[in-house]
């Protein structure tokens, strides 16, 4: 549905994106993750036919964004970051106007349908100037959906919403993902984790990692992290666990609770459980926990790696080598 090859865009002397290559399949929700100014909006603007790239090609729904711009624009629904709307129009009139611009048949019926779907029916005659931020966001989404596009491009769709609205919009996006190919950008990591099938991390105009949110975690961590909780007195627990081969970097959190990492390639969890029970402790809980996408993100988008603390040296080295690995693959 979306196929991008070697996409580069310069604003004067500043290079906004450099040699981006990626694709998105039909029915996929692709997340575009990166700090502000990383080139997300630029990429989206190129894909929507707003501006041409400096070099490279991009195809959306089988059409080239430069040579067949109008065909692309017919098939793409776009919600820009700022959700631009006309404050002096009513919700209905605005959506009707956008539907007419896209030459939707039975525009009024279609607008009514969308108003109902997005819970805007009672606001149809309100002026956009009087809408709350959340409502505006919904109008922006309705506008992007009005012509039932094959591809939806949403630039920071949940920015500036309250938590309830964020959940609402995320659910909506997930639901839309069933019928549309969606490219959405965000700098909220948990959002990408929850909503997207696949995540691309972009920094300074380059893709630094690309995978499913889960695999991205696995590949970057290599080792597992495990948390252990025993009942009652936890004296001596640390030495019991540390004696099991395959356990590394053990940290005691509080009484009866500790966390450890496994040596890459080994899974000592069964032995650890046995050792704890044999030593007479009441094992209440043992669960793996992943490195959050947040940490990966920070690792990948850090401008310059800060000098590692002695204790963390090993871990940072590992992740750095993993990072190079990812660069090669993407």
């Amino acid at each position: 549905m979306i196929r991008v090859e070697g996409l580069t865009k310069d604003y004067g002397l500043r290079r906004a994106i450099e040699d981006l290559t990626f694709d998105a399949q039909k029915g996929e929700i692709l997340g575009f993750l990166g700090p502000n100014g990383a080139g997300k909006t630029t990429t989206m603007r190129i894909l929507t036919g707003y501006m041409p790239p400096t070099s490279g090609t991009a195809q959306v729904a089988g059409f080239d964004v430069v040579d067949q711009s109008l065909e692309v624009r017919r098939r793409v629904g776009y919600m820009p970051e700022t959700v631009p709307l006309y404050p002096d129009m009513t919700v209905f009139d605005y959506l009707k106007f956008m539907a007419d611009l896209r030459q939707v048949a039975n525009a009024e019926d279609r607008v009514d349908e969308l108003l109902e779907r997005l819970g805007l029916l009672d606001r149809a005659e309100s002026y956009i100037a009087n809408l709350s931020k959340g409502m505006r966001q919904r109008v922006g989404l309705a506008q992007a959906l009005v012509h039932s596009p094959e591809v939806l491009i949403l630039d920071e769709p949940t920015i500036g919403l309250d938590p309830a609205q964020i959940i609402e919009v995320r659910n909506l996006i997930k639901e839309l993902g069933k019928d549309h190919t969606i490219l959405l950008s965000t700098h909220i990591l948990s959002e990408a984790q929850q909503v997207c099938n696949r995540v691309m991390i972009i920094n300074r105009g380059r893709i630094v990692a690309e995978d499913t949110p889960e695999r991205l975690q696995d590949r970057l961590t290599g080792s597992r992290r495990v948390s252990v909780q025993v009942g009652g007195d936890g004296d001596g627990l640390a030495s019991v666990v540390a004696s099991v081969p395959g356990v590394a970097r053990l940290t005691e959190k509080e009484d009866g609770r500790l966390e450890f990492e496994t040596v890459p390639g080994m899974d000592p969890r069964a032995e650890v459980a046995r050792a704890i029970i044999q030593a007479g402790y009441d094992l209440l809980e043992m669960r793996p926990y992943g490195v959050s996408l947040e940490e990966i993100f920070l690792q990948l988008t850090r401008d310059e790696p800060t000098p590692p603390q002695p204790a963390e040296e090993e871990m940072l080295d590992e992740s750095m080598s993993d990072m190079k690995d990812l660069n090669l693959k993407s």
Partner: peptide, 14 residues
């Protein structure tokens, strides 16, 4: 100023 030009320029309008 409103940024709505972005919507017009990405709509199938020459």
């Amino acid at each position: 100023r409103l940024g709505t030009i972005e919507l017009l320029m990405t709509a199938p309008v020459r």
